[in-house]
Computed example of a mutant assay.
Amino acid sequence: MEHLPVDVRASLRLFAFYLANGTIDVELLDGIDYRSTVFHSGSSLEQVFAIYGNVLRVDAEGTVLNDGDAQYRVAQWIRACCDPSYRVEPPFEAWETELHL
């Protein structure tokens, strides 16, 4: 594969837009302006994109299968960073938060 499929590129673009706009999963993050937390350091932003990329599933034709699930897992991570009383359910598995080199 020479380039990411169009569907994957579109999902990444929209994810970045929602993230920067403060509108990732508006129900879970209602009333939480997470942008200062996420954009405060490169490592937080790096973790957000790692979770999104690790959870995102694509079929053999390059069609994204679970963009909403990937965004929701990111929203859970962000919520846990902003609200120490929030518990991620189900807890993150190691593969979801792994940073690839």
Rank of each mutant, 00 (worst) to 15 (best):
G53Y: 04
V58S: 09
N21Q: 14
D33H: 11
G68N: 10
H40V: 08
V64L: 10
A94H: 04
Y18E: 14
G62D: 08
F15Y: 12
E89L: 06
D59N: 15
D83H: 06
S85E: 10
F49V: 13
G68E: 13
Q47D: 08
V38S: 10
W77M: 06
D69S: 10
S36R: 15
I24K: 05
A20Q: 11
N54Y: 07
E46Q: 14
D67L: 08
V74D: 07
Y86E: 02
Y34I: 12
T63H: 09
G62P: 10
L19Q: 09
A60W: 09
V74R: 04
A80Q: 09
L12P: 03
S43R: 12
G31F: 09
E61I: 01
N54F: 01
A50N: 15
V48D: 05
L65Q: 13
E93Y: 01
G31P: 09
N54K: 07
D69Q: 12
N54S: 07
F15R: 06
E96A: 01
D59M: 07
V55Q: 06
E46T: 08
F92L: 02
V8S: 05
E93N: 02
V64H: 09
E61R: 14
F49P: 02
V64A: 10
T23L: 12
P91T: 01
S43Y: 13
Y86V: 03
A20N: 14
I24T: 08
F49G: 02
T97E: 00
V26P: 07
D33Y: 11
I51H: 03
I51D: 00
F17Q: 14
V64E: 06
E46F: 11
L56M: 14
V26C: 09
R13H: 11
F17P: 00
